[in-house]
Each structure stands twice: as C-alpha cells, then as structure tokens.
Design a protein around this nucleic acid. Structure first.
Lengths: 138, 138
DNA sequence: CTAATTCCTTTCATTCATAAAGTCAAAATA
DNA sequence: TATTTTGACTTTATGAATGAAAGGAATTAG
C-alpha cells in the first residue's frame, strides 16, 4: 500500500509541511507534479489527515503542562465529559484509557493559580492524580 | 505581544497549515502580503515552531496507542533513557514528570506481540504501569 | 500480440509569493 | 503645535510554484 517513497514523503512533510512540491520532489527523487500526485493520493486515502503547526505553548503564556489521571467514583461519566467540554482552552487531549484510571487528561495552564481553580472544579466530578511535565525527552 | 489577528492566524494554520497566504489573509481580513508578514514575524519570534502533518497511525499499521507510567528503582536513569533512544520507532513522547512515576511514555505499536516484546525489554530497566488508549475525546 | 493500467515526465497557463514602493494613522519628539 | 518617526498596511509587478493536460515507458491482463 505505502512504499518507501511514500514514507519518505510523510517524513519530509512531518518536518516541514509548507515545503513546495518541487522541493519535496527533489528530496525524494521525483518531479514536482509526481510528488504532488503522491501527496494527493495520501490525502485521498486518509493517511495524511491534515496540515498543522507546532506552537510554542510557553510563548502563548501556557507555562504549565500537566497530565491528570482521572478516577470516576460513579459509572456515570457525563458530568466529567461536560466539564472537559467547557474547559477546552486548557485541555490538549482527553484519552479514555484502560488500566488504573478511566481517563488520562493532558492539559496546559498559564499559572498554578489557574491550575488550582481547574482542579477545584474538576474535583466536583471526579478524583485525580496530577503529574506535571518537567521536560520531553524526544 | 500577540493580538487577536495573530491568534486567528495561529488558529487557521493549526487547522490547515498549507493554506495560501492569500486565503489566510482573506480569513483574517488582511491582504496576502500582510498575512505573510505576520506569519514571518510569528516564525521569527518562535511562536510558530514548525509546520507539520497529522498522520493516521492506524493506516500506517500502528493499531495500538498506549501510555506507560515508568517507575525506576535506581536513581540511575541512563539505562532506561538509552533504551528509549533505541526504540524511537515505537515512542511518540517520553515525558519526565513529577508525581507518582518518573516518566510518562507515550507509545504506538502494530500488534500486541510487539508491545509484549517491548515490555519485556523495558522491564529489564524499570517497572511500569500500562494504560491502553481506547479513544481520544477531543 | 494488443490493450489497458500505472506512474512518471514535460509543457504551459494560471495562481501565488515576495520584494519594493507608497499610504495612512498613531505616537514620539522638538 | 508642528514635525518626524514608526509601524502596519495596501498596491503593484516580477519571478516561482501549482495544477491540468498530453505523452512516454514499464507492467499486467486478455
């Protein structure tokens, strides 16, 4: 389904998705139109879901990056899910998981104070264990 | 530092970073060159770190998405960090965290078998708790 | 052996990006 | 108050990229 050229294209676009098709072609030994056709096919079959940017969250004022293991006492998750819907500004990902907890919530906050406010509200619906990200080894 | 137009630009580029500067300008009520100048400034001051793509991991054969809470017995983390260096294919993020464990490892695997192999090797260096991602509510 | 398919290249018209010059308003300075 | 400076924008024009169309080589199917 995907050959090595396709993988190279995905690799290049992961590094810089605003590269021109001509340049992309040069990197994978194709002409511009050939690279463009490959990319179009990768879009059509859904391998490429979209084009995005990486933003420096700290420069946006989000100095705190945290994970919250969520533990629901009741089996009724809706209050928690409604809460996270309302707090999208602070929520990066909200994974439903197997294992210890029910959810793993990835969040960002400008300050400890806003984190605290968030936790107070969160605790009305569920219990949690907090892990603050110190750095990402990747 | 960043005004509402800049935030709108970041929002649009997050949704589609391959949009033309002309189109981007139209969305935020600017001309092409003006939008382009804004974006260049956002790049220069490091707010925009880069341009990337979203890839459907399942279509690449990675059917399993998991988080591993890592617990190191010894204070000497290097064996673990060397191990993760060698396993980059399976590792999405490797966060050093405060809280219960020492690290939170985000991984992907094609099969349970390869996950099992990974865990066997991982367990030579550290203990872990495994959480499998069922879905992402976001 | 011929026809169809796939993947590519080349060509060309259209569109985009980018640099340069000019406009305007707000802020700073004398 | 008058003048200058600054910053952000628009307009214009040119060089470059995109995308559609046509054509060619290699592979597969009938």
């Amino acid at each position: 389904m995907l050959d090595t050229t396709d993988m190279l294209i995905l690799d290049e676009l992961s590094r810089n998705s605003r590269i021109t098709m001509k340049e992309l072609g040069e990197k994978v030994h194709l002409t511009g139109p050939a690279a463009s056709a490959r990319v179009a096919k990768l879009e059509d079959n859904g391998v490429i879901e979209g084009y995005s940017i990486n933003i420096d969250q700290i420069k946006l004022g989000f100095h705190i990056h945290a994970f919250l293991n969520i533990y629901t006492k009741s089996s009724y998750h809706q209050p928690y899910l409604s809460f996270t819907e309302k707090q999208k500004e602070y929520i990066i990902n909200n994974y439903k998981i197997s294992g210890d907890g029910c959810y793993l919530l990835e969040c960002r906050f400008p300050s400890n104070e806003l984190l605290d406010n968030f936790l107070i509200d969160l605790n009305k619906h569920v219990n949690y264990k907090l892990s603050m990200v110190i750095k990402n080894n990747k």
